[in-house]
Structure formats: structure tokens, C-alpha cells
Write a protein that binds this DNA or RNA. Structure first.
Length: 597
RNA sequence: GGCCCGGUGGUGUAGCGGCCAAACAUACCUCCCUGUCACGGAGGAGAUCGGGGGUUCGAAUCCCCCCCGGGUCGCCA
């Protein structure tokens, strides 16, 4: 080894010993004769001092160093002179007096700061990925990711789970996301697909009698990207036999609670995890992945709004629509400009508009007078009606009422987004709180308007709730499932379900989804056949590792917790992927590139 | 595919019709400095303002097209 000690490990106890360090020049402070080097390796930073009176050779080597040069230093660990200790550094009590210094490799001036967290253009971060990963924050994130995965493996191992690898070259699935395809050399015109998830494979492992399976599995989906979506991502894929919904949720609650307590003890988890149904989530928060770090619950004021003289509300109330809203505490002082920003947000999410009412003053709602209400539409509402609406939203004077009217499906997203926005504006979303929660009882199907058919809300292997099986043939839209999500803050962290293990029921679901018997046999025959040989009742879940790490690291983008991520347009700027293939490669694969018209 | 934001010395920003042959910080180069730790001091070099076209007496600045990065809607069983 070219080093015998980690720079970041140096403590008082090393004083008097001779050490050899190797790492990068983090920073250089040249005082002419005395030169200080902050030497950085993965473990941290140690101060090296070069004194010409101690070692002229080492001093002259150190004098030529620049940031990010790779350096080996041999020297004696000693206490820093009294008064020169650095409290900000774990190694700040000691320093290494250089006796020998060797330049292992010089370095060009980096394209951005390694020793500073200053923002860097995203393209530069990706193009010079190895350099960006040298930053302390990225090292911390990668270490955190390692700890998360390690913890999960240990946790599941203790509970009898077996990690099994499943193929990356597998078969295209008809539904769901767009597949990444891999052409077959041996079978002209045929393709493998990369798995969107090992869903069917893990179910087959249950049929195989594994009982408890998991995998840290790479998944691929060829869809457009977001801050929290990469084309390839990692799931903790997990499946258990002989379980019910509660068993999976309890296991996940224990896993996540102990994970956070071990890996990021500074974060606060709310225990026990709230368990709310999909219907409750939509009604109270306007979304199936609510941020539960704050309240601001939505209230239904349709009946009251219908009694007003405000036509937009009356019309909606009279035609089966809803008027819903919530109170933003202390926001009665919002300016016209601020209100317009909120209205714009709501419109961008597809709502027709936003009705605001500022309840001025303070004290009891009972004393609220007509002149205390500031609203463009106040004249259509009696003061009593406004009091009634305010009281249903649990508003106080000084608050701002925010309301949206329309069809339930059209207003929930805008309201959910508005609630989230106000939670952030009001500083209610504590970054050190992880509001983990379960959302259950998702619908089994959702109606696809374009194709005029039913699609799976989760996936086609999800079991319907026992009491709703009879609805399958009569009213599939009302049939609820045994699917569940884990949400945290404003993110969906995991999805899972109890699966169907009965061939007949599975076949029936496929038929409702519109597959012909031939398609069912071709695409799912292997699974259906397996179900006929004694498939155990089973279920599972798949938490997203990248998102977990992102939230634990306090990052807002997946790119900060993935070593080599892709751009929003799915390019790898480091390697330059995707790239063209040679004519020989194409010929071997029986492929021809057709230029875009 | 739609909408929104951004692209100015190596990096991060300012400038948003003439005061800009472009400013600030930092990095870089040279010199000085024996206790610094975002060391300090003196000096220097470095940008055809993402690309192309247009408007104008005059464009980093206004308009159009394109490219790149980001956010978002659609999409993501």
C-alpha cells in the first residue's frame, strides 16, 4: 500500500507516530517558507505542514503542488501548536510534519471546484462525473447509499429472506412502461426486453417455494424523465408467501423505522406510520402521495357553496361537482400578486380558477363582519355563509381561504398542489421529518379514456379485495384492490400488493383488461401455467432505493445519489451514450436504421 | 410532443438597446510572506456574451429558428 493511515482518521492518539498518507491536495496555504496542505482522501482531511528547516526536499515538492494533485506524504504526527487547533476538523488537533513528499500524479486545474459546494451546471457535473463525485457531499451520498443497501440486506437476511438474481435479458411486457429492447443476434427480428421490474419472476419464485425473496434489482423504463425518475433505477424488490397485506406493511414499518434510526438518526420518523386509504388521501389531501408533515386538510364545502349567489359555485354544486378548499393560516395579508401566483399554479394544474377569501383581523370568527372579508366574490356570499365555510375549514381570522370548484377528478390535483405549495411557503414541511405513511385500498382498475377500456391501476397481478370480487363482472370501477403504497413527504417510495394466485381469477382479470385468449396464453401463459401447480398465496412490495437515499440525503434530484446518472433527455454525457452502432454490428443484429423523415 | 426557467473569462454570478473594446467573486500565472485553515498582500493573463439569421445608426440586451441543461404536463401497468 502506498499509504498506511487514512487522513481523516488522525487523532491525538497518533501523536508521535510516523504515518504515510496518500490522497489529493484539497487546498494549499503557502506562507513562503511554511506551507500547509489539506490532504484529502475518502476518510477526510488532514493538515500537512512542510517546513524547509525540517525537510528541504519535502518542502520543495510541496511548494509545487496544486489543487487535486495526487500526493504521498511520510511524516510525523504531532500536536498543533497551542491556539492553532482547528475545531471544524475532526483531525484539527493534530498535523503531519512532512519528512518525505512524493507527487504520485499531477492534475490539470479542475473544471469546477472540488473543495467547495458551489453550484455547478448540470452538464458539467455529468461530463466530469469522476471529479464531481470527489466532492464531499457526493462521497457522503454514495456512502449513505451503501449503508442503506447494506442495512436492508442485513435486515432481511435476519428475517429469512433469500436474495435471488433474475435475468436482465427477458421478455417484453405488453402493458406498462415502454420497454428497452435488445435485438437478438441469433433470432432475426426478435428482441429481449430489459425488465421494468422483476414482477413476474418474483411471483414465480413464490411458486418455486422460496417463501421469502428479495433483490436489490435494477429496473428499466423507457419513459420521459423527471427529477425523481431515471431510465434505469434500483428497487428493493421483495415478495413473501402466505402473507396478508398487514404482514407486508408491518415488515416495511419495521424496516424503514430501523433503517432511519440506524442510518440517519438525526431524522425524525412519525411512529406508528399513519395508514390511510386511497379514498381518504384523495379527499383530505388531493393526492395519493400526500405530504403528511403538515395538516392543511381539504374541506368539502359544496353544500355551503351551493347556497351562495356565486354562479360558478352554484353550477358546480348543482351538477355533481365539488367545491373544496382549505385555510392557509395567517395568509390574509397576502398581496394581490401573491394571490395571483397561487391562482396561476392552480390553473397550470388544470383547475378553472381559484377563489380566495381573506379573513381580516383577529379574534373569534363569530365577530367576523362583512367588511372583514376581502374577496373578489365576497358580494355573492352572506357573512354567515362565509363563517360556515371558514369554520368547516377550521379557519381563524387572519387566515386565507383557498377554494377550487369543479369535477372531483379535475380539482384534486390542483388542490393537492396548492396545499403542498402552501405547506412549503409557510415553512411547515420540516426537512428533518420523514412522514412515512401507508396508502391502501387503491382501485383495481382505472378507465382509459383514449382507448375506452379498463387498465390496471397497479398491475394486472394485483388481487381484488375479497368483498369486491363480485364487482369484477358488474362494476369494475368500484372494485378496490389489495394494493398499497408507502409515501414519504411528497414522494411515492414504494408500491406493492397482495397478488392473485388463482388461475381462474387471473384469467378473468386479463379478460377485463381486454386481452384475447391467444394474447393471454402468449404473454402470460408461463405464469398461469405455474399457478396450476400449487401457487401459494403471496404478496410483496418494491421500494425505490434511489428515492429512499435521495430523501435521506436531503437531495432534490436522483442524480445526486446515483454515481453515473443520465440527463433528462436520457443521455450519458460521460460516455456519450447512446451512440451509433457500426454497420457490422447492425448487420449481425439484422437491424437497419431508418432515418427520420 | 406542449409549457416554463437558464446558457456571459476555468467556475459561479452581475449587466437586459448606447455609460460594455463587458463588471464582481473565486480559480489560474508571477512575486512577497514561519502558524495558516475559504490564509494574507502586490501584480498579471483570461470572454468573438450557446449557435445561426433578423430588427436597429448601434445588440450580451429586442425578434425568429436551432442546440444544450434543468423543471413540469402528457407519459411512468
Amino acid at each position: 500500500m502506498l499509504k498506511d493511515t487514512d487522513a481523516g482518521s488522525l487523532r491525538k492518539s497518533h501523536v508521535g507516530t510516523e504515518v504515510t498518507l496518500a490522497g489529493w491536495v484539497h487546498r494549499r496555504r503557502d506562507h513562503g517558507s511554511l506551507i500547509f496542505i489539506d490532504l484529502r482522501d475518502r476518510s477526510g482531511i488532514a493538515q500537512v505542514v512542510a517546513n524547509p528547516e525540517v525537510s528541504p526536499d519535502a518542502h520543495s515538492v510541496v511548494g509545487n503542488l496544486r489543487n487535486e494533485w495526487v500526493l504521498q506524504v511520510k511524516g510525523e504526527v504531532r500536536l498543533r501548536p497551542p491556539g492553532t487547533e482547528n475545531q471544524n476538523l475532526p483531525t484539527g488537533e493534530v498535523e503531519v510534519l512532512a519528512k518525505e513528499a512524493t507527487i504520485l500524479n499531477p492534475a490539470k486545474t479542475p473544471p469546477f471546484y472540488i473543495n467547495d459546494e458551489a453550484e455547478v451546471d448540470e452538464a458539467l457535473r455529468l461530463r466530469y462525473r469522476p471529479l464531481y463525485l470527489r466532492r464531499e457531499r457526493m462521497q457522503r451520498n454514495l456512502v449513505l447509499r451503501h449503508r442503506v443497501v447494506k442495512f436492508i440486506r442485513d435486515f432481511l437476511d435476519k428475517r429469512g429472506f433469500i436474495e435471488v438474481e433474475t435475468p436482465i435479458l427477458i421478455k417484453s411486457t405488453p402493458e406498462g412502461a415502454r420497454d428497452y429492447l435488445v435485438p437478438s443476434r441469433i433470432y432475426p427480428g426478435s428482441f429481449y426486453a430489459l425488465p421494468q421490474s422483476p414482477q413476474q419472476l418474483k411471483q414465480l419464485l413464490m411458486v418455486a417455494g422460496l417463501e421469502r425473496y428479495y433483490q436489490i434489482a435494477r429496473c428499466f423504463r423507457d419513459e420521459d424523465l423527471r427529477a425523481d425518475r431515471q431510465p434505469e433505477f434500483t428497487q428493493l424488490d421483495l415478495e413473501m408467501s402466505f402473507v396478508e397485506e398487514k404482514d407486508i406493511l408491518d415488515l416495511m414499518e419495521e424496516l424503514f423505522t430501523s433503517l432511519v434510526e440506524t442510518v440517519t438518526p438525526e431524522k425524525r420518523v412519525i411512529k406508528p406510520f399513519p395508514r390511510l386509504t386511497y379514498q381518504e388521501a384523495i379527499a383530505k389531501y388531493g393526492t395519493d402521495k400526500p405530504d403528511l408533515r403538515f395538516g392543511l386538510e381539504l374541506a368539502d364545502v359544496t353544500d355551503l357553496a351551493g347556497q351562495s349567489e356565486f354562479q360558478a359555485f352554484r353550477k358546480v354544486a348543482g351538477s355533481g361537482g365539488l367545491v373544496k378548499g382549505f385555510a392557509a393560516p395567517g395568509c390574509s395579508i397576502y398581496s394581490r400578486k401573491q394571490l395571483e401566483e397561487l391562482a396561476e399554479l392552480v390553473r397550470a394544474k388544470g383547475a378553472p380558477g381559484l377563489v380566495t377569501m381573506s379573513l381580516m383581523g383577529d379574534g373569534s370568527l363569530d365577530d367576523l363582519a362583512e367588511s372583514d372579508v376581502r374577496s373578489a366574490v365576497a358580494r355573492y356570499f352572506s357573512t354567515d355563509l362565509i363563517k360556515a365555510m371558514a369554520s368547516r375549514m377550521k379557519a381563524q381570522r387572519g387566515d386565507l381561504l383557498l377554494m377550487v370548484a369543479g369535477e372531483e377528478e379535475k380539482i384534486r390535483e390542483p388542490l393537492g398542489a396548492l396545499r403542498e405549495e402552501m405547506g412549503h411557503r409557510l415553512g411547515l414541511a420540516d426537512p428533518n421529518t420523514l412522514a412515512l405513511a401507508f396508502v391502501t385500498q387503491f382501485p383495481l382498475f382505472e378507465w382509459n379514456r383514449e382507448e375506452k377500456k379498463w387498465g390496471s391501476a397497479h398491475h394486472p397481478f394485483t388481487a381484488p379485495r375479497d368483498e369486491h370480487v363480485s364487482l369484477l363482472d358488474t362494476d369494475p370501477g368500484r372494485c378496490l384492490s389489495k394494493a398499497y403504497d408507502i409515501v414519504c413527504n411528497e414522494y411515492e417510495l414504494a408500491s406493492g400488493s397482495i397478488r392473485i394466485h388463482n388461475r381462474e381469477l387471473q384469467g378473468n382479470i386479463f379478460r377485463i383488461l381486454g386481452y384475447t385468449p391467444e394474447q393471454i396464453q402468449d404473454r402470460f401463459g408461463h405464469l398461469l401455467d405455474a399457478f396450476e401447480y400449487g401457487a401459494p398465496p403471496h404478496g410483496g412490495i418494491a421500494p425505490g432505493i434511489d428515492r429512499i437515499v435521495m430523501i435521506l440525503a436531503g437531495e432534490r434530484s436522483l442524480r445526486e445519489v446515483i454515481a453515473f446518472p443520465k440527463t433528462q433527455s436520457a443521455q450519458d454525457l460521460l460516455f456519450g451514450a447512446p451512440s451509433t452502432a457500426s454497420p457490422q454490428q447492425l448487420a449481425e443484429l439484422h437491424l437497419q436504421v431508418v432515418p427520420e423523415p
